[in-house]
């Protein structure tokens, strides 16, 4: 028998605004992504110094997870299913800049370790002690149908109790995250139509 799946909560972090379940939580006029994400971190009163070592993509995913994975909502078997368009390009460029000049070749280990998009998943897993299924996909744009099917399969096949899924993208000093927590209770059904609607209204 199919289990009922709901979008228990959702958030967006985009265009200098953070919202949770449709309500604006934070607004800031920072001109760059790094300053904006730091302002969000401060506004949420998080104490996790490792945040400052992360690249912008990981910071963005981390902040979204902070909003959704509360003590009440999270389970140790919360799967993570993310996607984006730019992969880790923002950090890849920084790494490339550090190795362009053969005479001044000093690749930074702290930058290099973030040259994969799924490192953000690892940061969230460490923070929330998750040893669960995870995947990071690359699409040109948010693919609600794929996400719905993948997230639904994880729950129907008992691979996860809940799923933190969605879109998290950083490129050319712009960031966009739309994340949601899928669980067995909530008010919004986990359907392709609802995912599209929430994404478009973010």
């Amino acid at each position: 028998m199919n289990k009922n799946c709901y979008i228990q909560s959702y958030c967006s972090i985009t265009s200098n605004t953070v919202s949770l379940n449709g309500d604006e939580l934070f607004k800031d006029d920072s001109e760059d992504v790094k300053s904006f994400l730091k302002a969000v971190y401060k506004s949420l009163e998080i104490k996790y110094p490792k945040f400052f070592k992360m690249d912008s993509l990981s910071k963005l995913a981390f902040l979204g997870a902070e909003l959704l994975l509360t003590e009440e909502s999270k389970s140790s078997n919360t799967a993570l299913v993310f996607s984006n368009a730019a992969s880790s390009l923002d950090t890849d460029r920084k790494h490339q800049e550090s190795i362009n000049d053969a005479e001044n070749y000093f690749p930074s280990p702290a930058v290099f370790v973030y040259t994969l998009p799924n490192i953000g998943i690892g940061e969230i897993s460490i923070r929330h002690q998750l040893k669960s299924e995870n995947a990071f996909f690359i699409f040109e744009k948010y693919n609600a149908e794929f996400h719905h099917n993948y997230e639904n399969c994880l729950i129907q096949l008992n691979k996860a109790d809940s799923v933190l899924g969605g879109w998290v993208n950083v490129d050319e000093n712009k960031c966009e995250a739309f994340l949601y927590l899928i669980a067995d209770r909530g008010e919004i059904k986990h359907t392709i139509k609802n995912l599209i609607e929430l994404y478009n209204n973010k």
Partner: peptide, 17 residues
Amino acid sequence: LGLDSIDALELIVMLDK
């Protein structure tokens, strides 16, 4: 200070650079 293994690598690069 609670530095980690990546920080150690970063310090090695700093010594060189």
